[in-house]
């Protein structure tokens, strides 16, 4: 959808019906933030931190996240 300008425009309009303009800007900003950190994580081969792994308590397996290639960077996930 990201390359479909009409679809993107429709989704923006939908979001702006549900959210305030300030909230809409925050959504756009968080989309930017995690397109940075996801790429850094996957191109440097870092493992999920022990603290976060402990907090997630089986959730990665339950959600199928261990099927992602980058799960191989965290010991015990693949």
């Amino acid at each position: 959808m990201a390359n479909d300008q009409a679809a993107m425009q429709h989704e923006r309009a939908q979001l702006l019906r549900l959210l305030s303009p300030q909230q809409f800007v925050d959504v756009c900003a968080v989309i930017g933030a995690f397109n940075v950190v996801d790429r850094i994580a996957d191109s440097t081969g870092i493992a999920l931190d022990d603290m976060m792994l402990a907090m997630s308590a089986g959730l990665p397996q339950e959600l199928g996240l261990t099927n992602f290639n980058s799960a191989a960077n965290t010991p015990g996930m693949r």
């Binding site: 996801d38 994580a41 996957d42 999920l48 261990t66 992602f68 980058s70």
Partner: peptide, 10 residues
């Protein structure tokens, strides 16, 4: 949601 679309485990 973004991370799932990027298939990022981290």
């Amino acid at each position: 949601r973004v991370s799932a679309l990027n298939q990022c485990f981290y």
